[in-house]
Design a protein around this nucleic acid. Structure first.
Lengths: 246, 246
DNA sequence: TAGTGTGAATTGCTTCACAGCA
DNA sequence: TGCTGTGAAGCAATTCACACTA
């Protein structure tokens, strides 16, 4: 399949050596269920809305509504982080933000490199959600001569040949891999060899990576196919319910 | 199970009014578990690799390895589509591709519009994985004067004011929403009013959408946060195991 | 003999319902 | 009184193990 550049993301996920956390080892040091971890960022986002309107406390009911989950599920999720709600009142918005951020490790400074500066790579570079969450882009790489040397978002795109050097200099921990599928595995190997801790793979392929390196897939085609499946079911149901055309 | 049309899901995900299917109604018409549906696109991808090397049959073991899942899980997944493997031999690559494609509804022609032509929108427009999977981009929209009228991938970007008209003309069923968070809900409402069947939301916010419209979230910040969480756990474990610095 | 297909066991997630506290 | 926190119940998904067959 294709080559291009990019795509998307997940959610549900499964573990397919890509997303999802399987129950592999260390994740259980403190037992926060994977499904819960996957929802924490959403809660954080919803909390941002409340914070913006200077709301000081929220009930599980209200927060859950905004996050699109059930109230009971939200409470259970929060209870895993050692909850700090007040009975009869609700949760302190500020406190929850702190709590979730710390749990996710967002209070650390994460250094990220972007590999592949096509449209997707540039979209990622310009993504503002980064900075506000403790992620900073410390390097951008591409193989294309016409892209190397350009300034993007205040930084210069470097030649992919300097990848190892760049990661070494900056001690980057995470990498966003936004290159064509046929180049992905090779670059992933180099990232791993350079000591990267986690890779977010946007290329439409499955990477083989040692278990000690975290890997997540974000693939547009996959998401679109899943969406189409569900939309298709609906379409079929409509047909049946509406006019019974054979 | 015969023919295919669509199917289902349930469970793994979360529902965060975004991804994942909750057990809402129709999805259960034919019982393919959600978790399975989410993996089918990955199998399809892996099968492409085998097809490229003219391999005619694969064992669950080999296919599972390439897809990054366990062999038993793969076999169970395939059994939901009414499997066509041959004991002692394996699965026919060509047959499996057909089977999965039909189940996902990829043999239909899906018409897709892209709303928001920033870097991300353009990356999506250039994504080749589309065409090969039965998706065709039938419209591209933006509010920005400087972008409207430009040609991207053989088509002209239209003014977002013409969104309803564009969807009407083309009978588009799916939409890729790649706009800033503060514009997302408004556009989503218009998409729904125009009769769209499913929305893939790339904006970093949670949309409120009627249940009859399918919705999936693809959020970079969320993925990166989840990745950081797992990478962070590993980092902590390394510290403990390695040098016991306090 | 090699490898599928699947009941049964297991694990993990979600939902319920309510005790307990501010 | 209102809302959190959580055991327990209910489900869904994963894994196991093996009967079965090409």
């Amino acid at each position: 399949m294709s080559q291009p550049e990019y795509a998307e993301l997940p959610a549900v996920d499964t573990h397919p050596h890509g997303n999802a956390a399987d129950g592999s080892g260390i994740d259980e040091i403190r037992g926060i269920p994977d499904a819960t971890v996957a929802r924490l960022p959403v809660y954080l986002q919803a909390l941002g809305t409340f914070a913006a309107t200077d709301t000081e406390t929220v009930s599980s009911e209200d927060l859950a509504e905004l996050a699109g989950v059930g109230a009971a599920k939200l409470r259970k999720d929060l209870s895993y982080l050692g909850s700090y709600g007040t009975r009869g009142v609700g949760y302190s918005v500020a406190r929850l933000v702190t709590q979730i951020s710390e749990t996710l490790g967002l209070t650390l400074d994460w250094r990220v490199v972007i590999v592949g500066m096509g449209h997707l790579g540039r979209a990622l570079a310009g993504y503002s959600g980064f900075v506000t969450r403790g992620f900073s882009v410390v390097g951008m790489f591409d193989v294309d001569e016409s892209v190397v040397g350009r300034r993007v978002g205040g930084q210069t795109v470097r030649d992919a040949a300097e990848l190892e050097a760049g990661i070494g200099e900056t001690s980057a921990q995470l990498a966003l891999l936004a290159v064509p599928a046929d180049a992905a595995q090779g670059l992933a190997d180099r990232l791993v060899a350079s000591g990267i801790h986690g890779i977010l793979n946007f290329a439409p392929c499955v990477l083989q990576i040692p278990a000690h390196v975290q890997l997540r897939r974000v693939d547009l085609a996959t998401e679109l196919q899943i969406l189409a499946f569900h939309a298709g079911r609906r379409e079929a149901a409509d047909l049946l319910a509406g006019k019974v055309s054979s």
